[in-house]
Design a protein around this nucleic acid. Structure first.
Length: 297
DNA sequence: ACTATTTGACCGTG
DNA sequence: CACGGTCAAATAGT
């Protein structure tokens, strides 16, 4: 329930606020810090073994992230309106997104989000989580991109992913990734729809040979190259190893505990899990081959 | 050769 | 009618 937000949109702000650029910039900076902290908090919360408790905490964190993201978005758009688009971006990769002056036909910021449901003839409420992160791919799941769409008043397109095991395990999990800003550490709004059913299947398939009973919550550790328009992102994902075959992919290992101290958070800009750590996880993963189990429906 | 990604069209919803 | 989400054929990367 917490993941749902009221329909109250942010102020339309058709007129530029008299706030100075520096001020806006400072606020944006603070918001980003807050977003980072929220992200770290989310990662910590994800380690909570108890399902219910973790879920509730995640929902709260999602709310925080969403609020921060909304504020950030508003400020960003405001600043872009103040500035002239002549500055463009540092790289030519994002060139194609020339926002052609917000048309007056419909409110720009108004209909930010809406139909999250589809084909649900029963009006079933889908579990939706929104998080703001700098590493939209490193969530420990295997995602497969199936679409990309330019969103109305957004500077960056939205990328559509679905669980890599959606075919084999009918996993309904999906996620939308949308870049929020052009900062050096670009932020991405990640919308997670539906829970993974694949991760629930894998742990039960562990071969009896492995004495280590890594029960509790286990997640698929996989990495998908998310081709994001941001060159920064591309560089980040370049260090990520590529998958071989889905059948060779292993699952069911618990995620490493990210040890973030608040000191790191406040001093360094990004103590997020480094690609090296993820790579190590990958190697660990390959030690535990997944047994093909088709004892499903 | 195989698989993931890209990209534009199509379709449903508001 | 416009927008957002998904499909699916074509393409690229390994």
């Amino acid at each position: 329930m917490a993941t749902r937000r009221p329909k109250s949109e942010m102020s339309p702000l058709p007129e530029p606020t008299p706030a100075s650029d520096q001020r806006v910039d400072a606020v944006i900076e603070e918001l980003r810090k807050g977003a980072q902290l929220a992200e770290f908090l989310r990662q910590q919360v994800e380690l909570i073994p108890e399902h219910g408790r973790r879920d509730a905490a995640l929902a709260n964190v999602s709310d925080i992230s969403t609020a921060l993201a909304s504020s950030l978005s508003v400020l960003q758009s405001e600043r872009e309106q103040l500035y002239s688009p002549s500055s463009s971006s540092s790289d030519a990769g994002v060139a194609a997104h020339a926002a052609p002056a917000f048309g007056a036909r419909n409110g720009p910021v108004a209909r930010a989000r809406r139909a999250k449901h589809r084909r649900g003839s029963h009006g079933q409420e889908l579990p939706i989580k929104e998080i703001l992160t700098e590493t939209p791919e490193n969530d420990g799941f295997h995602w497969r991109k199936y679409g990309e769409k330019k969103i109305l008043n957004a500077a960056f397109p939205r990328l559509y992913y679905r669980c890599g095991y959606s075919d084999e395990h009918k996993c309904p999990a999906k996620k939308y990734v949308q870049q929020q800003d052009n900062g050096d550490p670009p932020l991405f709004m990640v919308t997670l729809i539906n829970d993974h059913t694949c991760d629930a299947l894998f742990p039960a398939e562990q071969p009896p040979g492995s004495s280590s009973s890594s029960s509790a919550n286990s997640q698929v550790l996989d990495f998908t190259k998310a081709s994001i328009s941001s060159p920064t992102m591309a560089a980040a994902s370049a260090a990520v190893p590529r998958l071989k075959k889905e059948e060779d992919v292993v699952a069911g290992m618990s995620v490493t505990t990210p040890s973030y101290t608040y000191d790191e958070l406040s001093s360094s800009s990004l103590p997020l899990m480094s690609p090296m750590q993820w790579e190590m996880e990958m190697e660990m993963k390959s030690l535990f081959r997944r047994q093909d189990a088709s004892s499903g429906s």
